[in-house]
Structure formats: structure tokens, C-alpha cells
Amino acid sequence: MLFRRIYQFMIVYAVFLAILLMVKKGLSLSDYVIPGLPLILETAVQMSAGFFTDVMDTLSVAILGQGISIFLAFFVGILGRKSSWAGSMIRVTAYNIQAYPIVALAPIIFILLGDGFLSRLLIAAMICYFPLLLSVLGVMAAPVEDIEHFYIATGRMRWQLEVKIRAFENLSKLTTVIAGSATLAMAGTIVAEFIAANAGIGYSIRIALYQSNLAAILTALFMIGIVISVYQGILETLGEMVKAKWGSENKGKLL
């Protein structure tokens, strides 16, 4: 899972680079617009270490933001699973808010909180929170009647058991959404850094952009891609391990 993610990214990146170099060649563009392969490699050697530290800085904020949004999504999703008016209100509000581009709120957050760690964290959490919330709400609000019937009929149903049954029955969906939200958290953090932060890979890309240094930007993109691939690969592997241990595997599926 982990290695597949990495080599998939390497293939995509290589194709992207090849297209870029073909455009350079086809349109006879100068190294100033699109740098040649030697310059890209030279820049990569020079800046990789620094960019790696920046990406790890960004990733740490993204992981923290993702953790917060997972916690909040489950908290609100569990509260909003009921068909009561409160549950309906939470669901409708979530559906409406998620339709709004959260990134557009970033300037307000920077004005109110400044361009430090907290702003990056908040934007990262906000960007991956709503897609997560919608999935968790969808899972938690859908009864698993074949299993729940017995517990309801015999008066054994408690909210903890209800949540456990629904989460367990949708383990595959939830682990996929959580792994997928890592990209969103990373994108949110980079956007925040790009807009106004003073650290992280987004901030480095902004500097490279002002210097029109495409080779540095390509190096940064490579670093981001590798790190996010490893992170997502780890999340997916963890998800597979959870599913293997707890999942409702069906021997019939083997046939």
C-alpha cells in the first residue's frame, strides 16, 4: 500500500515533468520560464534538505488539524445522527456550510489571529472538517437494521452501542474518508502558509514564486508529493490493519 502510493506519485510526477519539458522544447522557452532538467536537478540538490524540513513542519500542522477535525466530525456526527429537530438542524447546517469555500475565510482568520501557527492549524482543520463531517453524519444517521433490531427489541440499545455498530459496519468507508482527508488537511495548511504564514512549505513556495524560481517550486512539489504519499500510505495501511482485525470479513467474498 505504502510503496504503491510512492511509485504512483513518482510516475505522475515524471509524466508532469516530461510534459513541462516538452512544452519548453516545443515553444523554445528560456530557462527563466521553464528551467531545464540540469537546473531542476541542481536546485533540488541545493534545496531538498530545507524543503524537507518545511514539508515536515507543514505536515505536523496538517496532522494536528486533521486530528482535531476527525474528533470534531465524530462529536458532531454522533450528536447529529438522531432524527430529532436538533439532529436535523445539525445536518442541514453542515450541508449548507460545506457548500461554502472555506478557503475564502482564510483572510479573516489571518486578520483576527495573525500569521502564526494557530491560523494555519485552524484553516487546515476547517478545510478537512466538513467533508469528514458529511461522511460521519451519513454513516451515523443510517441505521443498520439487521443488527440493531435485536438490541432495540430487547431494550439493550444504548447510544454507545448504536455508534459502535454503525461505525463498525462502515469501517471501510470511514478509514477511506480519514485517509483521503489527509490531502485536504495538507492542502489547507499549504494554502494558509501561501496566503500569510511565516513558516512551512507554502511559505517557501510563495518566496519561490516571488523569485519566479520554477525549479524551486518543482522541488517543493516533489517533496510535498513524496511526504503526503508516505503519510497517506501509512494511514491506509493502518486502516487495512484495523479492518483486518475488526472488519466484518466475509468468507463468501473470497469465492
Partner: peptide, 23 residues
Amino acid sequence: ILYSYNLERLPGWSSTGRHLDRI
């Protein structure tokens, strides 16, 4: 009055024996 039907399932997080013990 209890109603049981043939498509019901037990949760899959533990063995059927443990489920029977619990209920």
C-alpha cells in the same frame, strides 16, 4: 412480544460465543 427474522446479523467485532455470553 419479540420478532426475529432470518436476515438478522450479530455484530462482527467479537466471536459469536462472546456475543451470546453478553446477552
